[in-house]
Amino acid sequence: MTILVTGATANIGRMVVDQLIAGGARDVRALTIDPEKAALPAGVEVVRGHLGRPERLGAAFEGVDRMYLAPSQGDVSEVLEVARAAGVRQVVDLSGEPESWWGSVCTAVEGSGIEWTHLWPADFMENTLSWSQQIRAAGSVREPHPETASAPIAMSDIAAVAATALLTDGHLGRAYSLGGPEILTRAELVAQLADALDRDIPFVRSSREETIAALTPTMGDTTGWYVDNVLLGFAPPPESLPITSVEDITGRPATTFAAWARANAARFAEG
C-alpha cells in the first residue's frame, strides 16, 4: 500500500512522513517541488510535483492507495480528479469546516468520490512564534483581546492524527475537529511562554493598528488578514473547543502548551 504525502517538506507534511515511518509504513511517497533539497528519511520515495500543476501529477499518483492532502488555497478539484483516475481510495485532508476559509478543500474532497477523512485543527501552537520579534524587541506581547480562548494544538499532534487515519481503519467519512488538551486564553499563553523563557512578558492590550505594527516584522503581508480574521474575527465559545480529540484518535496524550513552549524556547530568542 503506497501512501502519498503532499507538501512533504512543509511543516506538517514533513512530520506526517516521520509519523508514517514510525507507525510502520513501508511504502511512503513524498511530493515536493524540490526533491534535491527534500532531505527526507532513507526509504522514502521522493517525487517532484506541485498541487498547483495537477496535469503533471499522473506519475506521482501511480500505484497510490491513500494520500495526505496538504492545505491549499487554490482549487484542488483537478488534483483530486487525477488521484481518483489513478486509483487513490482515501484522502486525509488538512482543511477546515465548510464555512471556514479552508472550507473549499473539504468540499472538493467530498465531491471527488474518493473516501475521505477531514482534519480540522484549532489554532497551531506554532502560531505563537509570531510574537518572537516583539518579545525580543519590546519584551511584551501586543494583541487586542487577552481574554480570547482557544485549544491550541501542536503541529506534531496533527501529523500523528493524520498518520493514524492513513494507517488504521475506522476513519472513513469522519471529520475530526482537532484541539490541544487545554483551553487557554491569549494572556495565559503568554504567561506560560514567559515561564518557559524564564522572563517577565507583559500582555499589552492594543488596537488593531498597534497589533498589526507589532506583528508585521514576523508575519509580513499576511498580518492584516490574520489580525482581522483570527484575532478580531474568531472567538468561539470555550465549551465548543475540542480538547480530547488527539488522545481519542491516537491513544497518546496531546502536547500541552507548557511542554511545547519549553521545547521551543530557543526559537523565540533567534533573530
Score class of each variant (00 low, 15 high):
Ala38Tyr: 06
Val230Thr: 13
Val16Cys: 14
Ala39Cys: 11
Leu193Val: 07
Gly43Met: 11
Arg84Met: 01
Pro146Phe: 07
Ser100Thr: 14
Gly271Asp: 15
Glu99Pro: 01
Gly74Met: 08
Ala194Gly: 08
Gly111Gln: 10
Gly251Trp: 11
Ser112Tyr: 07
Arg56Glu: 15
Met67Thr: 10
Val79Met: 08
Val82Asn: 08
Gly74Glu: 03
Gly224Val: 13
Arg84Asn: 03
Ala137Trp: 00
Asp18Tyr: 01
Ala214Val: 07
Gly7Lys: 06
Gly43Lys: 10
Ala149Pro: 00
Val227Ile: 05
Leu94Thr: 11
Thr148Lys: 12
Ile158Trp: 05
Thr185Cys: 03
Gln19Tyr: 02
Trp102Met: 14
Arg84Tyr: 02
Thr222Phe: 12
Met155Pro: 07
Thr255Val: 08
Ile135Gln: 02
Arg14Glu: 12
Asp198Tyr: 00
Thr2Gln: 15
Arg252Gln: 15
Met125Pro: 00
Thr9Gln: 07
Ala85Trp: 00
Phe124Asn: 12
Thr148Ala: 14
Ser95Thr: 04
Asp195Ala: 11
Trp102Tyr: 08
Ala85Tyr: 02
Pro144Tyr: 11
Ala59Gly: 06
Phe61Ser: 05
Ala38Glu: 06
Leu197Met: 13
Val91Lys: 06
Gly139Val: 04
Val230Gly: 02
Glu81Lys: 14
Ile3Met: 09
Thr2Asp: 12
Thr32Ile: 10
Leu189Ala: 03
Arg14Gly: 15
Glu210Asn: 10
Leu20Ile: 09
Asn229Arg: 11
Asp75Glu: 05
Thr223Leu: 08
Arg142Asn: 01
Ala30Ser: 04
Ala122Asp: 09
Gln192Met: 12
Glu115Met: 05
Leu119Cys: 09
Gln133Cys: 03
Arg262Tyr: 03
Leu4Lys: 07
Val92Ala: 02
Ala263Ser: 13
His118Ile: 06
Val47Phe: 07
Gly13Val: 12
Leu94Gln: 14
Ala265Arg: 15
Ser132Trp: 03
Gln90Met: 03
Ala162Glu: 14
Ala42His: 10
Thr168Asn: 06
Thr9Phe: 04
Gly173His: 04
Ala165Arg: 12
Glu115Trp: 04
Pro35Ile: 07
Trp225Asn: 09
Gln90Ile: 02
Thr211Trp: 00
Met219Tyr: 03
Trp116Met: 09
Pro236Ser: 06
Trp101Phe: 13
Asp195Gly: 00
Pro217Ile: 05
Pro98Val: 08
Arg142Val: 01
Ala22Leu: 04
His171Lys: 12
Val76Thr: 13
Val17Phe: 02
Gln19Arg: 15
Thr2Glu: 15
Met125Ala: 07
Pro152Val: 09
Ile249Val: 15
Ala151Met: 05
Leu129Ala: 11
Gly170Ile: 07
Ala259Tyr: 00
Arg66Trp: 03
Glu99Arg: 13
Thr185Ala: 08
Glu81Ala: 14
